[in-house]
């Protein structure tokens, strides 16, 4: 794995206006992504986890400039893309692609599979028309579908097959960075592992860099190199996967990991049950956003904890890192 930074996100913010009344006046802001900074190395897979509504998708979309950032910078392959005009951005789009969550909604129901996969290549003027057709067939086989499907429509496929088509579409442009937003969440377990294996294989073959957005920690554990945990629009912890799953330091990460039910009756974990609901990003609490639900919070309600590097590559935003730890009785025995 080379060590060059392919993506650098600096103080990125995305606020959505809330409008109300007859004149649609702006009455507040949803701080979906609130001052987020991190780097992604070429060839690595960075997992982004967090609960529903914490801003994972918004982060992905804002990085790709599918949403306009409210503030902050996104540097991709050494070029700042957060302020490029949309026409200057278009050629760069070739190098960053997205795989979407919804296998049903992300394919245009009125287009044939062939044209769906080919569209990106023709937009960027890659290859001749016959080469493109050939390439589409190749890609279909690559993702485990028959090349003869080119003339079918999306509704003739199952969820897992559609997700493969979405992957083929993203790969068609040979991108360097692929953002996969909940790419396997809507699939059944038996299909999910097929798709995960496919993504892993393709990565090995083409050394893509993945930003893997998911709320499923078990999936993240199987596919990522590093993990970034978000809560209410902010990063609470970043670390290597091994570190996150063995020594999480932020109480939220601990609660999150301990809450996942494990399909093994012998796996007994001291479950941290959080109380209360995820607060809304419209009126985030003062101080540490997690304080109202945090079992160990003290002064945290007043001061906002900065994201600091507590050990090499392990960043935590908490006043009391490590005061809540993951207690398992025999969970790690097989590691």
């Amino acid at each position: 794995m080379s060590n060059s930074v392919i993506l650098k996100v600096e103080h990125l913010k995305k606020y959505f206006p809330i409008k109300a009344g007859v004149f649609r006046k702006i009455v507040g802001w949803v701080k979906a992504v609130d001052d987020v900074s991190f780097e992604v190395l070429e060839g690595e897979t960075l997992g982004i986890v967090g609960e529903s509504g914490c801003g994972k998708s918004t982060l992905g979309m804002t990085i790709l400039r599918l949403y306009e950032p409210t503030a902050g910078r996104v540097v991709f392959a050494g070029k700042e893309i957060s302020r490029l005009s949309s026409s200057a951005l278009r050629p760069i789009r070739k190098d960053m692609q997205m795989i979407f969550q919804d296998p049903f909604g992300s394919l245009n129901p009125r287009m044939r599979i062939g044209s769906i996969i080919e569209e990106g290549m023709s937009v960027h003027g890659l290859y001749s028309s016959t080469e493109r057709k050939e390439k589409v067939r190749e890609l279909l086989e690559k993702v485990g579908l028959s090349a003869d499907y080119v003339n079918r429509y999306p509704h003739e496929f199952s969820g897992g097959q559609r997700q493969r088509i979405g992957i083929a579409r993203a790969m068609a442009l040979s991108p360097r960075l692929i953002i996969a937003d909940e790419a396997v969440s809507s699939l059944d377990v038996s299909i999910r592992s097929q798709i995960l294996n496919l993504m892993k294989e393709l990565k090995r073959e083409y050394s893509f860099t993945y930003l893997f957005i998911s709320h499923d920690l078990a999936v993240v554990r199987q596919i990522c190199d590093r993990v970034l945990v978000m809560y209410l629009g902010r990063i609470v912890e970043i670390a290597d996967k091994k570190v996150i799953f063995s020594r999480p330091l932020h109480p939220y990460t601990v609660a999150l990991i301990s809450a996942v039910p494990v399909p093994d009756p012998d796996y007994v974990v001291d479950r941290v049950i959080l109380h209360g609901d995820v607060p809304s990003p419209i009126h985030p609490p003062s101080g540490c956003y997690f304080a109202p639900r945090c079992p160990v919070a003290e002064r945290c309600r007043k001061d906002e904890p900065p994201l600091v590097e507590v050990e090499n590559g392990h960043w935590v935003a908490c006043h009391l890192p490590g005061s809540l730890s993951l207690k398992r009785e025999n969970g790690d025995k097989k590691c």
């Binding site: 999910r192 294996n197 892993k200 078990a218 554990r221 199987q222 796996y267």
Partner: peptide
Amino acid sequence: SIPRLDREQTKLE
């Protein structure tokens, strides 16, 4: 075929 939280798998079955 369930991805496991409690251990790493190189290839999912």
